Simulated assay, not measured.
Amino acid sequence: MVPTTVPLFRFNSWIISFILFGHASAQWISYSDNGIASMTHYTLPESWVAACGCTASSDSFPTAALSQMAYGSSTAYGPACGRCFNLTLLNTFLSVPPFYPAESKSIIVKVTDLCPLSTTGWCNATTKGPNAAGHYLNFDLAYPSNSISSNFFPSNASYYGYTDFGVWNISYQSVSCSNWEGWNDAAALGSISSQGPESVCCAANPTNSSNTCTSYSDHNGIAQVFFLFFNIRRSRHI
């Protein structure tokens, strides 16, 4: 069971009537620096302190949550915290027919949050199998955001009758955070001091084992957590 002292920043945005925990050990997903993933988006309040405990100013720039088993922890910080990725939209696949934008759009994000593992959904990939899109990684973009253009996601409303496709196939590429828009803003880098060093870790530019966050779950002997949600209300677009 997760101790009550563990910061669960992200879960403040859920209303949950029942949670089922299971599985005693974690097997994190190893992934290459470049590949194909799925992308969803979620509402992150302004100046919100997400799971990594990055400074509240970080969400003044593009950020994303990463699916739990790739993130590397079931709560608080994980090895993905602070990593930066260039994400490029490829196509939608839930629409009929799939939508292929005429122009490829990319965005560089910093991982500041955890997208919790569940029995269904786009962040449910484990080493035993991918999500419904066939991918082992899902990036959950913090959007809408003042840092991202309101027309970042292409659409064709006249054909489909709606503008938000919800889920995209994307390509991802690990990049230096010196390419991230928030790199030159000191207030956007690092962890919030008020939470203490034991509960937060948001590396400015993680590149190797010496400057990459460890797994809070592994470090504190917290069992891997699988979530089964009922009667959920949340502002995720799927």
Rank of each mutant, 00 (worst) to 15 (best):
S147G: 09
G129H: 06
G134N: 05
A56M: 09
F153S: 09
Y160K: 05
A26L: 00
L20Q: 14
F153A: 07
V6Y: 07
I108W: 02
A203M: 02
Y71N: 00
C52H: 10
T92W: 09
G78S: 01
Q173S: 15
H41G: 08
D140T: 12
M1L: 12
Y31T: 04
N91H: 15
Y172G: 04
F11I: 01
T119C: 08
P45H: 09
P98N: 10
S210I: 07
I107C: 03
I29M: 00
K128F: 09
L89D: 14
P62E: 09
Y71F: 15
F61H: 14
P79M: 03
S235N: 13
A50Q: 10
C52R: 06
A125P: 07
L90H: 10
A80K: 00
G121C: 05
P62F: 08
Y100N: 14
S60E: 13
G221H: 04
A70L: 01
Q224L: 08
F9P: 01
R10G: 15
W14I: 00
N86F: 00
R234Q: 12
S25C: 00
R10Y: 12
N124A: 11
L141V: 12
E181R: 13
V109Q: 07
N156Q: 14
D33K: 10
G22W: 11
W180S: 02
W28N: 00
T119N: 14
F21C: 03
S193C: 00
T43D: 13
W168F: 06
